[in-house]
Simulated assay, not measured.
Amino acid sequence: MKIYSFLLFLFFSSSLCSQTFIGNQKDIDKILSNIKSFSVSVMNSDYKSIGLAYTEDAKIFPNNKEILKGKEAIINYWVLPKGFKTKYHKIKPEEIKIIGDEAYDYGYYEGITLRPDGSESNWKGKYVIVWKKINGDWKMYLDIWNSIKQ
């Protein structure tokens, strides 16, 4: 009985945090790689690479702000004030679905910002990204997110 209960626990707990990825595996892998690279760029304050992650006509929908359009506005959004650093940034997709040369993904993000005084701010939220395949690479076209109160 103990083994049966343990197996049921494993089955139900694994389904609670399961991911659903639908589409060509090579494209899924590229999107996942781009997600990881984006987080690295954010942590390194590599604004050029952040800009390259988006399409030329991209739009972002930051929490409590107007829609920002185009790479220049998007890059300016990501530039941190002097003395601030993103110490940790991770995007955790729940679902990725590829439909032709477009895809969407949604899930959760989390991070830690280091302030000039040495203190840290932890944050997390949920997001949706619409991707476009351009010249064999997947770029973010629409990027919307909002925070979750901790």
Rank of each mutant, 00 (worst) to 15 (best):
M1G: 15
M1S: 15
K2A: 10
I3A: 10
Y4K: 14
S5L: 14
L7S: 07
F9E: 08
F11Q: 09
F12E: 04
S13M: 14
L16H: 10
C17R: 05
G23W: 00
N24A: 11
Q25A: 12
K26R: 11
K26H: 06
D27R: 06
K30D: 11
I31D: 01
L32P: 00
S33F: 12
K36C: 01
S37K: 15
F38T: 04
V40T: 13
S41I: 04
V42W: 00
S45L: 06
D46V: 04
K48H: 08
I50K: 03
Y54F: 15
T55M: 05
D57S: 10
D57Q: 08
A58M: 03
K59Y: 06
K59E: 12
I60S: 09
F61Y: 14
P62S: 08
N63V: 05
E66S: 13
I67V: 15
K69W: 00
E72S: 12
E72Q: 14
E72C: 00
E72K: 14
I75G: 04
Y77R: 11
W78A: 05
K82D: 15
F84I: 02
F84H: 13
F84Q: 12
K85M: 10
K85Q: 15
K87N: 12
K90W: 07
I91T: 14
I91M: 12
E95N: 11
I96V: 15
I96W: 06
I98R: 01
I98W: 00
I98M: 01
G100C: 01
G100Q: 05
E102H: 12
A103C: 06
A103Q: 06
G107P: 10
G107H: 08
Y108D: 09
E110T: 07
L114F: 01
L114Q: 11
D117L: 04
D117C: 01
G118Q: 04
G118Y: 06
G118T: 05
G118S: 05
G118H: 07
S119K: 15
N122L: 10
W123G: 11
K124Q: 14
I129P: 00
W131A: 03
K133D: 00
K133E: 02
G136C: 02
W138Y: 11
W138E: 09
M140C: 02
M140S: 10
Y141K: 12
I144S: 14
I144N: 06
W145H: 13
I148S: 09
K149S: 12
Q150L: 14
